[in-house]
Design a protein around this nucleic acid. Structure first.
Lengths: 204, 204
DNA sequence: TTAATAAGTGAGGATATCCTCACCTTGGAG
DNA sequence: CTCCAAGGTGAGGATATCCTCACTTATTAA
C-alpha cells in the first residue's frame, strides 16, 4: 500500500497535459491563499482560477489540505536551495554583510512566492508541515552561525539562530504591512538591530 | 439609527443574569479561539462551552465577527491600561531595565489573555480592528521612546518603535512555540538583542 | 398580584463547501 | 486506424455551519 488518502493519494500526472494542469492548479491555489488565506479559499475558486473543472482539481489533489501541502513542499525545496546559496557565499562576509544578506532574505523569497510565508506562518491546517519547515530553517541558520562563530557552543548558536529567525520574520512583517509610513527607514533599523546583535555573537 | 447589524446590533444585557451570561460567552469564545483559531471555532461550540443555548449566544452576539470584535475590544482596554502602567514607571529605568520590561511585556499579557495575541495576529476576519490595535500599540511605544530619547526625531523614534514591536512579537513567538529546547536561553538572547538596540537608540 | 420586558431555548431553514461519481474526451502506442 | 488509459467534466449528495424564530421562562416594576 504505497499511499494513503489522508496524506497523499493524488493521481500523479503522467502526460504533459497533466503536468501543465497541475502547475496551473498549484499556481491558482497560491493566488487564492495569498488573497483570502487558507481557510477562506474554496476548492471551487481554485479550480475556476486555473480554468479547470472542479473534478480535475480533485483528480490531482483529493483534499484541500493535500493541495496546500503540495504547494508547501514545492516552495520548501526552492527555499532550502536559496538558503544553500547563502551558505556558499557566507564565508566571505563581513558582519555588516551578514545583516545585509540575512535581513532581506525572507522578504525577497516572499516576493518570489507570496504564498509560502503565508502558509508557513498561518496557524491553518498543515500546521505540522509548517513547524517542520520552521525547525529546519532554524537548523540551517544555526549551521551558518556555527561556521562563522566556532568558539560559540551549540546552545549559544541555537539561541542566536532563534533570535535571527524572529528578526527575519519581523522584517517580513514590516515589509508586508500595507500603508506603513517610513517603511524603508524601519527596515533599515531592523537590519541595523540584527547587525548589532550579530556583532555581539561573532565577538568582533 | 444608533446601531447597524453589520457592526454591532447586539442586545446589551440589562439584568445581572444577562451580564453573567455575556461574560461566560466571551470566556467560552476566548477558549475556543485559543484552541482552534478564529475560523475553525463554531458558534455552536462557543454556546456549548458557556453552558448556554445557541439562541442565547445569538441574542447578545448576532455574528461570529461581532463576538470576536467584542472580545478584542475588551482585551484592548486592559492592554492599553497595562501599557499606561509602563509609561508611568519608565522614567526611572536604565537601558537594561527597558529591555527587561518591554521584552516580556507581550508574553505576560498573553498569559493573562491568550486569545488577544491570537486574534490580533491572525489574519482572520476582524482584520481592520487588529490593524488599529497594532498601530496604536506602535504609537504608544513611540511615545515611550520619544520621552526617553528627546534628541531623536519623530521619524527615528517611529522606526525604533516598529523594531521594538517586532522584537516583542518575536519574544511571544518564541515563548509560545511548543517543545522548543533552550527556550529560556533564546528568550534571554532576544532580550539581549533588544537591549543592545535600545542602547544605540538612546545613545548611552 | 399582575403586567411587561429581559432572558432562554432548540428545531430547523438557508446557505455554502467539500468531495464523489458516472460519463465523456483526448492523444499516444501498437 | 483502433484501443485504452490518462485526463476532463459538472450535477448533485453529504455534511456542516450560520443564523432565525416562534415560543417559554425568569425577573423586575407598579
Amino acid at each position: 500500500m504505497p499511499s494513503q488518502k489522508s496524506t497523499d493519494a493524488r493521481r500523479k500526472p503522467q502526460r504533459q497535459r497533466g503536468h501543465e494542469r497541475v502547475a496551473a492548479l498549484l499556481e491558482a491555489a497560491a493566488s487564492c491563499f495569498v488573497d483570502k488565506g487558507y481557510e477562506a479559499t474554496t476548492m471551487t475558486e481554485v479550480a475556476a482560477r486555473a480554468g479547470a473543472a472542479i473534478g480535475s482539481l480533485y483528480q490531482f489533489f483529493p483534499t484541500k489540505e493535500i493541495l496546500a501541502r503540495a504547494l508547501l513542499e514545492q516552495y520548501a525545496q526552492d527555499f532550502y536551495a536559496q538558503l544553500g546559496k547563502l551558505a556558499e557565499q557566507s564565508p566571505h562576509w563581513t558582519t555588516q554583510k551578514w545583516a545585509e544578506q540575512l535581513c532581506p532574505f525572507l522578504i525577497a523569497f516572499r516576493k518570489r512566492h507570496p504564498a509560502f510565508v503565508m502558509l508557513v506562518e498561518s496557524s491553518a491546517t498543515p500546521a505540522a508541515d509548517a513547524m517542520t519547515i520552521r525547525r529546519r530553517f532554524r537548523a540551517e541558520l544555526q549551521a551558518l552561525l556555527t561556521r562563522r562563530a566556532p568558539h560559540r557552543s551549540q546552545d549559544e548558536t541555537y539561541a542566536a539562530a532563534v533570535v535571527v529567525q524572529q528578526m527575519m520574520k519581523g522584517a517580513v512583517a514590516i515589509h508586508a504591512e500595507p500603508g506603513m509610513p517610513g517603511k524603508q527607514a524601519a527596515l533599515a533599523q531592523m537590519q541595523h538591530a540584527m547587525q548589532g546583535y550579530l556583532h555581539g555573537v561573532f565577538g568582533d
